[in-house]
Amino acid sequence: MQENGFENLPGSGPLRDSKKFASDQMVRWCPGCGDFAVLAVIQKVLASLDIPREKYAFISGIGCSSRFPYYMNTYGFHSIHGRALPIATGVKCANPDLQVWVATGDGDALSIGGNHFIHALRRNVDLKVILFNNRIYGLTKGQLSPTSEFGKKTKSTPWGSIEYPLNPVTMALASEATFVARGLAADVAGLTEIVSRAAKHQGTAFVEVLQNCVVFNNGAWKEVEDKASREERVVRLQHGKPLIFGKDRNKGIRLKGFDPEVVEFLPDRPPKDLVVHDEKAESPHMAYLLSKMNETNHPVPVGVFRAVRQPTLHELMEEQIIKARQSAPTDLQAVLNNSEEAAA
């Protein structure tokens, strides 16, 4: 299929040892950074897949999390601020044989790269997009990010932020993403499950990871990260199951009009009108309502909001080429001789 001037080399088999996905570079994140957990989770997930190491490409922009490719013993490209997604789009479409991952942050993906974010998702490019959301600019030492809370004091907002934050999951759903999920860096088991599913999704798989920045925004997601309070502050989305949470499994989510509300009940008697999660729903309406739940009034939903299969950009691109080849000459000389007649 691939027409190129490069030699065909023998491939290797899948790697089962997650340590073999680590590069020889020293990991230079701050001690205690949430990024370490994500790195470990992804290395573990790759070792569980039947894909040889050389078929992985990790693409990133700029920011702490964007150092990610340097720490992976795969192909990697640390690019420029905000532009990982269009670069990854070129990589994936030029060689659909690769599994392409994007490591990005809240500033990289949603501020400087905001435009690329919505367009990569709407095109359903087959990418695994991991957004490390610590609600702060870390690499530039502590300025406001587009996910920072209203009123937040940072180096660039000493009087408190006067900007309203945006919600990455809401944005992903509004951008027609076919796989949308949220996980916690502090919950390795839960995150591993989510990332494995993202890895197997065909199309854009978007995962927001809530993680801490120990230096510039310590306690970014305190309540959901702390093991002690987590089960009260988090609701885990499970396909086909009602939305129930709490250490005692005695709380649930139902709709009041268009607004989700928390309802308490006796653990063995959940009310019938709890929201039942459907990640495969054709329209993302319910997923959108759930995405609007935030830690101020509700538990934070984690898990897979949406997982639907739609043709991806590279599949459609290849399909058009195959179709065009059936109806128009594939001989360059014929095209050069007369464009009008040779064009499809």
Partner: peptide
């Protein structure tokens, strides 16, 4: 950027 990515690939 898409062209740079394609070139990388």
């Amino acid at each position: 950027c898409s062209s740079i990515g394609a070139a990388f690939a």
